[in-house]
Every structure is written in structure tokens, then in C-alpha cells.
Design a protein around this nucleic acid. Structure first.
Lengths: 170, 170
DNA sequence: GAAGATTGAATATTCAATCTTA
DNA sequence: TAAGATTGAATATTCAATCTTC
């Protein structure tokens, strides 16, 4: 380690000048705000869950997504798409929830290629335990700073943004 | 593997009924939209960079953040905070950029505990190559779906949301 | 051959412990 | 002792290859 070193190095150069680097297009700024806000709130939620000795945030997202699905089950591919993670990643994530007894794999009789992630009673319980922590933390993060009307407006804007960003996420 | 299996299992149960699980509080929905939109656009950006044979998105974020800093350098701790990742994680991320010749570590003379991530000329070049890809993809994602005014409004809402979500992110 | 899902190797990220300097 | 940063172990995620079923 310790590869590049020099006391003040290029530091005191006034900067290449050609590189006054503000990406300050409106879209760039909006994206920056989106990324930072997502990271910050994610962090808050993870901390709240950890402090309550609960599973990590992705587990909640899996449980919540499956719980909303028709039969409380979801095809692996659809679940991966809803969570916007790779299929391979989802397989292993679900493996962990199965090992924890929260989920079960079931199979489709008509098309034996597809498998479902299916919610188990223990998963429902866990979801009901985690939800207040999540909702409470979100309320803390949101209520203090924006109105309910603004929250709804935010949701709408984000939804319309996503409808073109990725066809058919949900 | 193959732990839990059963043909139709709990699938056909109408659902515990007690668990009509919509987290449908306005804040919950806004957060869901935020998370999904972030993931979807992130994915788009990563794909665009990969298709152009360029470094991954986190590299861009590091370069862009350092480029905006006063002397085109940033203390490791501040950079980690700006990117909302752990210090340890940042150390290794910067290691990769240093090994690629894009960044250099410089040190503070007055307080020898602090080290800076400092932009190198090659890093500037890389940033200038990557930016059009990012900006172009963002324009595609945004322009098609929301107005510039809405983008600005989105940024404002997100910023005010973050000011309380995590004091002093930037 | 193509779709759905899983696996193994490689990569990236976190957490806790350590090291150095103030 | 505390602040700043780094390291090693453990964990999580991706990518490409594989396996099964349509």
C-alpha cells in the first residue's frame, strides 16, 4: 500500500481551471440529491433495525414485497425485478431468509422451471415486528421535514420518473 | 440447499388475512418510490458506463465529489461522509482509484493523522470522459418524463428531506 | 434453442480491531 | 484518551457459466 504520496503535491495548484467540474445541470443535481437522500435514509433505517436487533433492511424489503403479492408468494424473477437486484443475488438472499425460517420455496406445477418465494407464518410475524421500526423511523425522517402533501407529490414525481427509467419495474 | 419445498404449500391459503400488509402510509410509499427509482436509475447509469467500457459508478461519484472540492482534494473522512459509505469502505475504494492512477494520497503537514484523496490529471481526464455518459443517460431518464421545473422541485424536496435525515451530510 | 433459476469465482462492502498522531 | 485512517475477517453482491424444463 501507500502508493502515491507527496506532501502537497498537486494540491496547491489552482486546479486545471479547465475542470471547474460542477455537473450542475438540473438533472445532475436532482440525481445527486436523490442518491444522497437515498443513502442517508437507508443508513437511518439500517441503524434503527440494527439497534432493535433485527434483520437487515433487504430482508424487510423482501418480506414486504412478498407480503403484498397476490398469494403472498412471488416468482423469483419478478421479485428480483421488483427489488432491482440480480437474479443470482436474489437466490442467495432468499436462501438466507429460508434458512431463517421466514420464507419457503414453492414450485409451479404447470411450469416446473419457476419457483416462488413464499411467505411463512414466521415471516409474517417478523414483518409485523419490523414494520413499526421502519415506519417510525420514516416518520421521524419525513414528518420533521416535509408535509404529507409534499410526500405524496414526491412519490408521484418519482413514479413518473421511473416509468420511463425502467419499463415495468412493478 | 433446497430446504423448504412443497407443491402448493401455503400458497392457496387466502393469506393470514390479519396481514393485509400494505405499508401504505404516505411516507412509506414515498420511501418505496425513492428506493425503487434510485435503484432503477443507478442500474441505467451502471449499464451505460459498462457499455462504454468505463469504470463503475462509484468511481464517478468519487471523482466528481473530489473535483468539486476546494483544492480538488478531500479528507478521507469528509469524502466518506459525502458519499455516505463507511470509512473502511472508502479506504479500499480510493485504493483502487490510486492503483488506477486517477487519484493520489496526500498528507496534511499540520495534522499528520489526516490524509487527502487528491485528484490527478488522469483522474480529471477520466471524469471528463465519464461525465457525458452520465449526463446523457440522466437526460434520457429525466427529460422524457419530467420537466426541468419538476426536476428542480424534486431536488429541493429531497434536500429538505435530507437536512433532517442526516445532519451535515454536505 | 430459450426461459427460469441456481451455483461458483471474483469483487465489493461492512464491522470490529489496530495503528498512528494530536 | 480521542480522532483519523487503515487492515483483516466476515458478509453480501455481481458476473458468467451451468442445469433443468419448456
Amino acid at each position: 500500500m501507500m502508493e502515491g504520496m507527496s506532501e502537497q503535491a498537486t494540491a496547491t495548484k489552482p486546479g486545471p481551471a479547465s475542470t471547474q467540474c460542477p455537473p450542475s445541470t438540473p438533472h445532475g443535481e436532482a440525481w445527486g440529491a436523490l442518491a444522497r437522500t437515498h443513502a442517508a435514509i437507508s443508513q437511518r433505517l439500517q441503524d434503527a433495525l440494527a439497534q432493535a436487533d433485527m434483520p437487515p433492511l433487504p430482508w424487510y424489503e423482501v418480506l414486504a414485497t412478498v407480503a403484498e403479492a397476490p398469494e403472498q408468494r412471488l416468482r423469483m424473477g419478478d421479485l428480483a425485478e421488483a427489488l432491482v437486484i440480480t437474479r443470482g443475488g436474489l437466490t442467495k438472499l432468499v436462501d438466507r431468509l429460508v434458512k431463517a425460517g421466514l420464507l419457503e420455496r414453492t414450485f409451479c406445477a404447470s411450469d416446473r422451471r419457476v419457483s416462488y418465494a413464499t411467505l411463512l407464518p414466521a415471516g409474517v410475524e417478523m414483518l409485523l415486528e419490523m414494520r413499526p421500526v421502519i415506519v417510525g423511523e420514516l416518520d421521524l425522517a419525513f414528518s420533521a421535514n416535509i408535509s404529507v402533501a409534499k410526500a405524496n407529490q414526491l412519490r408521484d414525481t418519482l413514479d413518473s420518473l421511473r416509468s420511463g427509467a425502467c419499463r415495468g419495474v412493478l
